[in-house]
Design a protein around this nucleic acid. Structure first.
Lengths: 356, 356
DNA sequence: TCTGCAAAGGCGAACGTTCGTTTCGGAGAC
DNA sequence: GTCTCCGAAACGAACGTTCGCCTTTGCAGA
């Protein structure tokens, strides 16, 4: 235990600091700019020099400093992901796709949630901006409403999975009207007469879109939807159960329910069991999302599977295209949702019947 | 639409570039270093100068460049989160706590998954290192095994929620032996004689720990666990159902099951229903995790609730302390798990009976 | 022997900060 | 009236890169 600087054999292995281009250069006997060239595969150098530089870099375990590089290149190769609530399972299932695609393109993904601060999450977004992210993916329902957040995103490339107040940006997602229409239409085709609906929270656009789909499906079958068979939930099983209870109390003759997400649908199944209504014989149920347990509820839940992962991938891809100036603010990417029939809709033997 | 540079009234509003200290300085009539001082609240300046600088900064909408700051301060105020699989619900529920705590301390959180590349995710970690994150939180079971990944983390402050091959680092988590013991013990206390176990994947430490807890609980009750009533699952409902089927075929007299996570437990409930065994009368079931649907399965699932969110918070807090040099590599943070009784364990009227 | 040219690599500047030191100017002490 | 001291602000250097231009060297051809 003397006071020998650890790890400094030969030239250039620095103490307590990561090796820089200069350290590599010193060891290879060239200027640091030449090292830079070579390491980026760019330079006109002799094979001998190249070899010496590459050896030196390897020996020192040189890793380029992205921070310094970002400063001069004026891009960070990092993207921001602004979410409303990371605990929300829709958001949580969207993240892996976004991360994978960002990584595939050599970009880092900085995730930040909008804190319900005094400033309504402006700090969160400002943090991303000061870090000079190259672009932002927004998945925060708050942004549908709060114009101050929209303003912050005005001068950084942004894409979102929902519209943003006062901002024209590229959007990615699924056609939620079709989602509602597909689910409801399936129930009506099976001959269910009165199809009620447990909705998501009413302020969200996805909710009104799915309600529209529910109404359109009725129209498609020459019926008119009865808005009294509509009951608002809060996306949770408890909210779903409560909504189902209110709904069946008011309209005991309901033969089917379209529930705006699977989590609520689980609560709905629970409540129907409690009320002694058999699923699907008395009441058929269709959910939305296709959560991992959907195939294993009692009875197993028929649902519309939404392409969360693919949406994440598409969002990042669109953002990178947007940054490259290859797409315009009015770009729209719509990903298909798929009906997955199990038991709860009562359409058959419990096999997936596909369809689009 | 002439060729007037947009947004350049008065001095200093730059075109296509964000305003820098120099721009603010120009407008306020001081040197840019003085602006730096003032904006960090640090300087000895007259009120008049301060006011001019603050006005200029506000008018230009100046946002400090974290990249440049990082370069000179040699810290990025950003943390890396290395995960194995973001789709894993354990990981997904851990992220929000980590994000919240990082944000609370003004740090960005860069999330990266370990791709099953040719290089087994070394690229992912290297990317984080080249971005000079101040520290890394690891939540990737792969790291338990792969020594090459451990090496990469050797010279950056790291904490993890599991041990890492060949690396002494601070750890955060819950006592998984106690988890298994608590769940199994509860079933044994209720008089269930033979308590089987559907385990997680056997290579994971959490699995062996919970099996140990299962055995210890038997020992606590003067019994000896029968390893033939142990069956491996894969953390999914399908795997849980299959394991339960195998288990009951081999040992039809099982009166209870301890299942290593709730997701598998959902599959187990499904399978028990299919086999015509009533829960909890014929077979009692305890899960682990407390997923959102646990309270709404049929019957509702008794489980050991793990503090995922708090683990995320604690991990980041510990990492920041570690970076500050305030804790040592042998630091351990153990967070309590809580038993939540519902119907499936058969212990009572279905109210939460707490306990720790 | 000289000219010219290409290849190899050096060099200075810039990116936007922070930090430590220097300069300036005015007020107070002698 | 000169010297000292102190507060206010300017200044220079550094962080680790990239980029474009310049210099040096070596060699072919006249």
């Amino acid at each position: 235990m003397g006071d020998v600087a650890p790890g400094s054999e030969q030239t250039g292995a620095p103490r307590g600091r990561r090796p820089s281009l200069k350290d590599v250069a010193l060891r290879a006997g060239v200027s640091f700019q030449t090292v830079s060239k070579v390491l980026r595969g760019d330079g006109n150098v002799t094979d001998a020099t190249r070899a010496r530089i590459e050896d030196a870099a390897r020996e020192l375990d040189y890793v380029p400093d992205e921070v310094a590089r970002s400063l001069v290149e004026r891009r960070t190769r990092s993207l921001g992901l602004v979410v409303g609530d990371l605990s929300d399972h829709v958001v949580a299932r969207f993240v892996p796709g976004a991360e994978q695609e960002a990584r595939r393109h050599g970009h880092a993904l900085a995730i930040v949630a909008l804190a319900p601060d005094s400033d309504h999450g402006q700090r969160s977004v400002r943090g991303l901006l000061s870090r000079r992210v190259d672009g932002i993916v927004a998945a925060a329902p708050q942004l549908e409403e709060d114009p101050r957040l929209g303003e912050l995103l005005a001068d950084v490339p942004t894409v979102a999975i929902h519209s943003i107040s006062g901002l024209d940006i590229p959007l990615v997602g699924s056609d939620q009207v079709q989602t509602g229409r597909k689910a409801t239409g399936h129930l009506l085709e099976l001959g269910r007469r009165r199809v009620g609906c447990v909705t998501g929270v009413s302020s969200r656009r996805v909710t009104s879109s799915r309600i529209n789909g529910w109404m359109q499906a009725h129209h498609d079958h020459g019926q008119v939807a009865d808005r009294r068979t509509l009951e608002e939930g809060d996306w949770t099983p408890a909210g779903g159960a409560a909504a189902a209870q209110r709904l069946l109390e008011r309209s005991p003759d309901l033969e089917a329910l379209f529930v705006h997400n699977d989590l609520m649908a689980v609560g709905v199944l629970h409540e129907l069991h409690r009320l002694g209504r058999s699923v699907p014989d008395d009441v058929a149920v269709m959910g939305c999302d296709d959560i991992p347990v959907a195939a294993w509820t009692l009875p197993s839940l028929s649902t519309i599977a939404l392409p969360f992962f693919e949406t994440g991938v598409a969002a990042v891809r669109l953002l990178l295209d947007r940054i490259a100036g290859m797409v315009d603010v009015d770009a729209r990417v719509l990903l298909p949702a798929q009906r997955r029939c199990r038991i709860s809709c009562g359409c058959g033997p419990g096999t997936s019947m596909g369809s689009g």
